[in-house]
Amino acid sequence: MSWTAYLPMLWHGAIVTMTITLAAIVCGALLAFVFGILRVEGGPILSAFALCYTEVFRGTSLFVQLFWFYYALPLVGLSFDPITTGILVLAAHVGGYGAEIVRGGLLSVSAQQLEAARALNFNRVQTLFRISLPQAVVEMMPAFGNLAIETLKLSSLVSLISIADLTFAAQSIRNITLDSASIYSVTLVCYFAMSLVLMAAVRVIERFVRRGDVFPRGGHS
């Protein structure tokens, strides 16, 4: 049987890959903003906690994290299905790297802007959401775009815990047909196509951010 008969399997795998990737990016972005803001505004204790989080997930192998969450956590009574595990691990990975992007963006806001906020009697929350974040998010977007693409590529690791993603489907079809060249060429094109869609979505979000549709621009008391 020709490998083309298995295209529906590849299509299903691509949907699973994109679903896991998007879920991980959204959840990871939330973690990134929470821990990134804590690094800058959280005070000594919360800042130290956020630092521990970012260092653990940036400083350890995603491969090992995936297996630890899937095989070690059940030993202490925490068990997740494979897809939930894949999303959680990828989201934690995005959050760890993204928190540093957020921290860098917040620290890039000029001291003059912060002094102006104090002169207007803005409190810390007002300064964060009306002055710092509207400017910092614009600077963060290219780095977050790169992180989103990296997350898509790293999502192939979830096939190791028996998730029927695109990589898992490709490997299964290759084992049946023994046609490595055709299968992996199509898989390569699929990942490239998904990365183009992802980057297009990031650019749309970036346009909204630059127009001020995500965070309101400050300057009024």
Rank of each mutant, 00 (worst) to 15 (best):
L51Q: 13
L38K: 05
V40L: 11
G36M: 09
E55S: 13
E55V: 04
L30Q: 05
T54C: 03
C52H: 09
E41S: 07
C52N: 12
A32L: 04
G36C: 07
C52M: 12
A48N: 12
L30F: 15
F35I: 10
G28W: 01
T21Q: 09
T54M: 05
A23N: 08
C27V: 10
A24G: 14
T21Y: 00
G36F: 08
L38M: 15
V26L: 09
T19V: 13
F33R: 04
A24K: 08
I25P: 02
T54G: 12
E55M: 01
A24S: 15
G42M: 12
A23D: 04
L31V: 05
G28H: 01
A32M: 00
G42A: 06
A32G: 08
L38S: 08
V26S: 02
V34G: 01
I25G: 01
M18Y: 07
A29P: 01
E41V: 07
F49S: 12
I20T: 14
L46V: 10
T54H: 01
T54P: 01
A24Q: 11
I37E: 05
T21W: 06
I45F: 15
M18N: 04
E41K: 14
A32V: 02
P44L: 14
F35P: 08
V40K: 00
Y53H: 11
L38E: 06
I45D: 05
V34S: 13
E55N: 14
L38Q: 11
F33A: 01
L51G: 07
L30P: 03
L46D: 03
T21I: 11
I45C: 03
E55L: 10
E55T: 11
L30M: 11
T19S: 11
L30N: 09
V34I: 15
I37V: 15
E41Q: 13
L22I: 15
F49G: 11
T17N: 08
L46H: 05
A23W: 06
G43P: 04
A24E: 13
R39Q: 13
E41P: 00
F33E: 00
L30C: 05
C27D: 01
I25N: 03
L31F: 14
L38A: 12
I25D: 05
I25A: 02
T19R: 07
G42L: 05
G43Q: 04
A24V: 01
I37P: 04
I37Q: 00
L22Y: 06
A50G: 10
F33Q: 01
I20H: 05
M18G: 04
A32Q: 03
F35K: 03
I37G: 02
E55K: 10
R39W: 05
I20K: 06
C27W: 05
V26D: 00
E41M: 14
I45A: 11
C27T: 06
P44C: 04
A50R: 03
I25F: 00
C52Y: 13
F33N: 01
I45M: 12
A23P: 13
A48F: 14
T54S: 14
V34M: 12
L22K: 00
